[in-house]
Amino acid sequence: MKRAEQVTFGGGGLDRAAHLRGDRGALATAWADPAAAVLLVWQGKPLSTRSGRGSSPDQLVMIRPDHPLAASHRENCIFLGLAPTGAPQFACDISSWQPDALDQAMLASFADASEQQHPDLPTGQVFTELRRMMAFLTPLEAELAATANAVLSWHKSHQFCACCGQPSQVAQAGWQRNCAACNTSHFPRTDPVVIMLITHGDQVLLGRSPGWPVGMYSLLAGFVEPGETLEAAVRREVLEEAGVKVGAVTYLSSQPWPFPMSLMFGCAGIALGRELTIDHSEIEDALWISRADMMTVFAGDHPGIRPTRKGSIAHFLLQNWLADTLD
């Protein structure tokens, strides 16, 4: 797919500079670089200037390493890499901070519209749910946010050694955890997921999960199981969820999905029929929709179906299917 890397979170041009991760001297030099920048993340929400309310686009806020919030978390910061300009990029998790009157229910909701203003940051610089702003970010900003979210989420859920259960320590500038008790090293994980553009003639298969906003449908998706190819995962997931057999499967594009740390493999599949047998333990509903009706959905004029979220690979694949630009 010629436009594969135009998907959100892909193609930002970040140089991961892995050779610097174990070099303390080089990392200290990078931290002291006048051009160095740090992305603050609170409970998976990056620091931004605003959250999509108004006419101007969202953008990340990168602070200087000598800012107190960055300096106080330097020990466990992550070295993300070098921007195309050569400027060192870091990320710090400040989730230990607890805002006043925190609405935990809102944080746990599908569409978290809350914003958190830290007292040590200028008014208007707030922590915002990444899903709400991802479509407005530059490719580099999106890659930085996705990388930071995924690695920080891994650290949060892997603080103890999987071999012996003892606490592990951060190493390699945040890209490794070492267990001193059994001398085991652990590395960030990425969960492979297939997401499928399943078509039959001029119709595409959509589904919805329980708890999604009313009218929200998307492409079917599911985790790849151990010992399974992407093609086999596509056929299995579609058959399990919708009862539809799939023939030819081709790869289209991939998207890092930092919610919390997946890699979405976008695939196209040709259905062998349209009869649906929905497994309601897997999904709430599934339906076929024509290209003409999907254009109505994307225009926001469909009476019952909402368009997929901008910035998601589902939106990207459907948009290219409508434009006939999948090749």
Rank of each mutant, 00 (worst) to 15 (best):
W288F: 12
A314W: 05
N320Q: 04
A101W: 13
A32L: 09
D293A: 10
S72Q: 14
T296N: 11
S253N: 09
G52L: 09
G227S: 10
D33H: 10
V238A: 12
L239E: 11
T147F: 00
D279A: 11
V194K: 08
S218D: 13
D327N: 11
R16Y: 11
P307T: 10
P167N: 05
M106V: 14
Q319A: 15
R21Q: 08
P119I: 10
T190E: 06
H67P: 05
C164E: 03
G266F: 06
L102N: 10
Q319P: 02
F298D: 07
G211C: 13
A323N: 08
A113V: 13
L276K: 12
V194Y: 13
E143C: 09
K2V: 02
V224C: 09
P57F: 06
A221F: 14
H19V: 11
E115F: 06
M1S: 15
E240W: 14
P260I: 00
H158W: 07
M106I: 14
L152W: 06
E275R: 14
S209H: 15
Y217T: 08
E129H: 12
P88M: 09
V297F: 02
V244K: 01
P119F: 10
R177N: 07
G11T: 02
Q89W: 00
G10L: 07
N149S: 12
G269H: 04
C161H: 03
H73I: 01
E129G: 03
S290C: 08
A145E: 01
S168P: 02
A233D: 02
E129P: 02
H200G: 06
A32C: 06
G243N: 12
S168D: 11
Q98Y: 02
Q166V: 03
R132S: 11
S48T: 15
L206M: 13
M264S: 06
E75A: 12
L60C: 00
A232P: 00
F298K: 07
L317Q: 03
A145L: 03
S96H: 04
I289N: 04
L102E: 12
T123I: 13
T190H: 06
I313R: 00
Q104G: 05
M294R: 06
E141T: 04
H158M: 09
G201A: 08
C77R: 07
A35F: 01
A83C: 12
M196D: 13
A71H: 02
A286T: 09
T147V: 11
T277D: 15
T184I: 14
V41M: 15
D100M: 12
D93C: 07
V204K: 00
